[in-house]
């Protein structure tokens, strides 16, 4: 709901979320699927080095989503 409102105001926005059907249902247009509800940005079972790499790549995906044309609600896996 917040994401939709932010986009409505003319501010480009990307939604990093785990429950992507919900994110799509509430009207987010650019969605990046995260690792988990309680651990969105990396897998807590990975090594610290791998975790660092995971969050860097996930943010990279969010940046790519901002720069990708979409016609409708789209999940960037």
């Amino acid at each position: 709901m917040m994401v939709k409102e932010i986009e409505k105001s003319g501010m480009p926005v990307v939604h990093m979320a785990n429950m992507t059907p919900v994110a799509q249902g509430i009207g987010s247009n650019r969605i990046v699927k995260t690792y988990g509800i309680s651990f969105p940005m990396f897998d807590p079972n990975a090594t610290p080095e791998a975790q660092k790499q995971q969050r860097y790549e996930l943010v990279g995906r969010a940046l790519k989503a901002l720069n990708t044309p979409v016609q409708e609600s789209t999940v960037f896996e």
Binding site: H15, M16, L66
Partner: peptide, 16 residues
């Protein structure tokens, strides 16, 4: 949105 616009923010990443 209004608050970040004061600082010329042009895009938002929202993590849920």
């Amino acid at each position: 949105v209004a608050k970040v616009r004061e600082d010329a923010v042009q895009a938002i990443i929202l993590g849920s």
